[in-house]
């Protein structure tokens, strides 16, 4: 049996999945990226192999994506994260026509063809506005753990949108709201509105057709997902593997490439 690894080296976390030769995901792992990008990829792939119950040496092919993909020395193939997220989302939700990927340092909207190929995309990678780092700063200013903000946001009764687009200026705004006696859950929900509106603007630029699939680390934040659905006035797909979507896309595209290479050689 041929097994393929897809590894997605993001700015915050590195994700790896293992696919069997039918395209079934049989193992996954996630590690913090830190400074050594290649090392993080190695660690994530090794853990994903253990999770899949296979030997590291059994890997027939490795496809890398994410901003650190060029630092993955053991890769056989590198693919942009855009292509991988779209293909991953398509494989899990075949009716997907738009993909929103909200990562730690950037956010992207992609219009996707029926076959999972990217038709059009828009991204913000110039600043932290509309990305996970924005919520990280807000959480820090409020002295709330990042993994608590989703649940807190769902309790909001009177959210005030944060007007600053800039993550740094938003921090000051958050502090002002605290001094004015605003509740933490309302402030968090207001921050979600701010980030969501930026992402929806990106989505509109690529057409915003249904179905919409949400990928990336921010999907763990249920408050954020709910705000997005409220603002869009429609449901979005969020799978249990939302964070692994880039790695899944990489693995499946790697599998396809391997099959083509093998067919050509035969």
């Amino acid at each position: 049996m041929k097994v393929i690894a897809g590894v997605d080296v993001g700015s915050q976390t590195t994700k790896a999945v293992i696919s069997d030769e039918t395209g079934k995901i049989i193992g996954r792992a996630q590690v913090a990226t830190k400074i050594d990008l290649g090392g993080a990829a190695e660690k994530a792939v090794a853990e994903a192999c253990r999770n899949a119950g296979i030997e590291r040496s059994a890997l027939a092919y490795v496809a890398a994506t994410g901003y650190g993909r060029f630092q993955v020395e053991f890769r056989d193939l590198q693919i942009t994260e855009m292509t991988c997220h779209a293909y991953g989302a398509h494989s899990v939700f075949p009716k997907t026509r738009s993909v929103l990927d909200i990562g730690a340092q950037n956010s992207r909207a992609m219009g996707v063809e029926a076959n999972g190929r990217v038709r059009k995309f828009r991204m913000n990678d110039k600043c932290a506005a509309g990305a996970g780092r924005f919520m990280e700063r807000v959480a820090k200013a409020l002295e709330v753990e990042l993994d608590q903000i989703g649940a807190l946001s769902l309790k909001a009764t009177d959210p005030t949108p944060i007007s600053s687009i800039c993550a740094v200026l938003a921090e000051s705004e958050v502090i002002n709201q605290v001094t004015e006696g605003k509740k933490v859950e309302d402030i968090i929900c207001g921050a979600h509105y701010s980030i969501t509106d930026r992402i929806i603007a990106l989505l509109r630029q690529v057409g915003g057709e249904e179905e919409i699939t949400l990928t990336g680390g921010v999907t763990k934040n249920m408050g954020m997902v709910k705000t997005l659905e409220d603002r869009l006035a429609k449901k979005v797909n969020v799978g249990p593997d939302a964070e692994f979507m880039g790695a899944i896309g990489a693995a499946l595209l790697g599998l396809r490439r391997l099959q083509r290479v093998s067919a050509a050689a035969a």
Partner: peptide, 16 residues
């Protein structure tokens, strides 16, 4: 980087 949030990471990597 022009973004204050990103510049922090850039500085850290220079120092590293």
């Amino acid at each position: 980087n022009m973004c204050t949030v990103f510049v922090e990471s850039e500085i850290l990597s220079h120092l590293a």
